[in-house]
Design a protein around this nucleic acid. Structure first.
Lengths: 176, 176
DNA sequence: TGAACATACCTCGACACCGAGGTACTACGT
DNA sequence: ACGTAGTACCTCGGTGTCGAGGTATGTTCA
């Protein structure tokens, strides 16, 4: 999730680590903070993998900046991660939102639609958080008000997202 | 998240690891799988911390079972984790849902309400995934259809959850 | 008979996460 | 002159994650 977001931000424009962290915090910080001790090692990993290059520039106010630029390989990797996301990128809402935030970097509308369809299939699977044996339980069957809440909220989310997915897919398919 | 769910399930009834894993998979497996190589070390950790005890029983069909029982300390720890959740348990929807799934194990309705109020405060903070400087952007201001989607879905979720939170808090406060 | 699958538990090793702490410079207020 | 806050980057160490693999027994079906 973090690496995808880094690649996504750098695809827009080169950034130094400190600024990158601010943008990452705006995107995902309200869910979990983005500590520097997670970010900087991640940058190193991506650099070592040849996905980004760094150039030292004199700092605007303080220490020198390491300006990070996406390489060709980095751009290709981003596209690949967007076009062929892992299952967890589809199923985990946090990761899915990060993916959506950068999906515009996929050049082909058909490839974008393909990714949305994977999410659609996932959401259409009959699933619950709570089961009676193998049978998924509906909110109405639960006594526990908190578990009911989980299902009610999940249902509202799912319905809103399904509506949006169908509209957006129609629009994408119309552009072919 | 995993530890909380283990404590929560064992608070209902003693279980052996294999059965526990099935229940964990039903609860959180659609978001991320629960590998045995994560579960068994977690059980060991909790056992080492004195939060659960194990008793070997002859297996029903195959290998002997390690039946896990919550200790008094484990029950206390569960209540403490439910009553005083970390920030990430409030802000990360995945963790929040797990917390909600076991919140009934908090004996005091007022303590339950206190936890719901923390989530309420978090949801009422003006926040977005996308900013213009410091100003949170609304869905209508975004060109990118995918980023718009993120905000539209998040808004629908937030509204549904706020409705549920207010109703449930009213009901809990009424029981005092 | 034998393969496949389910039950049931476990270790190992690579690696990601992240709090704590460090370095160094600039700016601002008192 | 000094403390605090912001900019900008970094390491270290403890811990959690998880794929790969191992062990053993019972059932089912060809």
């Amino acid at each position: 999730m973090l690496e995808l977001a880094i690649l996504g931000f750098l695809c827009d424009t080169p950034l130094h680590g400190y600024e990158l962290r601010k943008r990452l915090t705006a995107l995902i910080g309200h869910v979990r903070p983005v500590p520097e001790s997670t970010l900087y090692p991640a940058i190193k990993r991506l650099e070592k993998a040849g996905l980004l290059a760094r150039e030292t520039q004199p700092g605007a106010t303080a220490a020198p900046r390491q300006v990070l630029t996406l390489t060709g390989a980095g751009r290709a990797e981003l596209r690949d991660r967007l076009a062929s996301p892992e299952r967890a990128d589809i199923t985990d809402e946090n990761r899915w939102f990060v993916l959506l935030a950068f999906l515009r970097h996929l050049p082909e509308p058909s490839a974008q639609a393909e990714v949305l369809r994977r999410r659609l299939v996932f959401l259409e699977e009959p699933a619950s958080f709570f089961y009676d044996g193998d049978r998924p339980l509906r909110a109405e069957e639960l006594e526990d008000p908190f578990r009911r809440g989980v299902l009610l909220i999940a249902r509202a989310t799912g319905e809103a997202e399904l509506r949006w997915l169908r509209i957006t897919l129609e629009s994408l398919d119309g552009h072919l």
